[in-house]
Design a protein around this nucleic acid. Sequence first.
DNA 1: CGCGTAGTTGAAGGACTTCAACACGTGTGG
DNA 2: CCACACGTGTTGAAGTCCTTCAACTACGCG
Lengths: 253, 253
Amino acid sequence: MTLASLVGARRSALAQRLSHYLRLTSDEMDAIDALEHGDRRLPAGATLIDQDGPVDMLYVVQHGWLHSSLRLPSGGRQILRFHYAGDLIGTSSIAWSQAAATLTAVSDCIVSAVPKPALGELFATQRRVGGLLFAVSAAENVAMADRLTSIGRMDSIQRLATLLLDITARLRVTAGGVVDTIELPLTQADLGDALGLTKVHVNRTFREMEARGMIARHGRRLTILHEAELKAFTGFVDRYETVATEWLPAAAA
Amino acid sequence: MTLASLVGARRSALAQRLSHYLRLTSDEMDAIDALEHGDRRLPAGATLIDQDGPVDMLYVVQHGWLHSSLRLPSGGRQILRFHYAGDLIGTSSIAWSQAAATLTAVSDCIVSAVPKPALGELFATQRRVGGLLFAVSAAENVAMADRLTSIGRMDSIQRLATLLLDITARLRVTAGGVVDTIELPLTQADLGDALGLTKVHVNRTFREMEARGMIARHGRRLTILHEAELKAFTGFVDRYETVATEWLPAAAA
DNA sequence: CGCGTAGTTGAAGGACTTCAACACGTGTGG
DNA sequence: CCACACGTGTTGAAGTCCTTCAACTACGCG
């Protein structure tokens, strides 16, 4: 038992996330909390990690959201995914000592640093948690595959609709309860970089979706009007709702 | 020590792959070999797992290659990635009990079945191997991000070039030595589904690349003529060459 | 030899891009 | 306090890349 657990201090967002999938013992939660070595506050727009720069840390998102992106030789940019509270990010530093992607804060954020060896220790000492992290990583892989499919095989309306559904689904987890209106801190240029479109065409797509009554916008506030229809239309599946855990061994004594 | 290791029987392709990244103890290799419960032989074109079908197994590719794909409500198909000897596939079954994607044999294949609980046991008993699998999964994530960027932000020539470079790089690992000519068992329709293009346009792109002297084709045999230039042109990076392991704990005694 | 699959080509059309201009809101310095 | 700059959003017109449709060729296999 750590002091944190005795005094009931707030758990790491990672521990909260993982306990959503699996009932963790307090030893396991303590071990996850103990990964973190210091918080870092990021204003919206700040860069946490820069592509091709050296990295020896991972981070846990505690609050706010970020995105990871790749810069192209030709000058373009592709936004790869968005990261929310409870996500373990910068995992490319696990496989290499150079960052594969750039991490940028979308909103004001708080992230906690995790040294790589601490994660190694977690795999060694907590029998189940490593497996659970692997499962979450597999789920993220599938979510990325969905994005790939969206960009490779759908038109601009479906692409944008899928992304908006994805963002609202993820934001709801932290917001709690039913939310159908979200505050989007992304520019249309950002959305274009995420969708493989130009900002001009993102704008036209927004207006077309409004004209069809799919969404409503007021400034940066965006409302999805017919969510069920939109999900059917795009074939959207929330990959983060559940993760199977029955295959994991029992927790260590 | 298992019998297999005593008599020097062939190691699982997964053990071979992992020992490329990290010097494994014979205990660790035995544990990895012990994951596998029976081989399965697949002719080219056969389906190993069908999207939305039930799954309770993972597979290790021992020989040949496969691809995973998603079918769209609209009838289209997106090929997500190719899997080669040493890959652990069907990992979406780790996170759910339904398959997220379809797995299809590209060439004649041999795969070994791995029950999910066996993998859980591996995470519990082999301190380092779980972490290594997590690192490999992180690398796969980045490779997928590269594909996403390719499809989202590149024109057809760059997309096709990137894919061809990727395939030759991966095939070389098993072929061993320098190979600049590969036998492509993929149809142009397959390539289109992988690249987010139509088969017609894949054909035109091939011919354009030939005309520019980038590649040569004779039937299904394909030669990359100026690999270095092509890599610079596309910004291709082989994400599987190395995986950092210095952060892993020491092997169990 | 004929049939099916894969590859190839042309012509027309459409989705998205590019370029360019303007509108709007916000913050900052004169 | 207003002028101005700047980032973001919006719109039009022209152009490009890729798709669609349709036909035809080449190849392998019964």
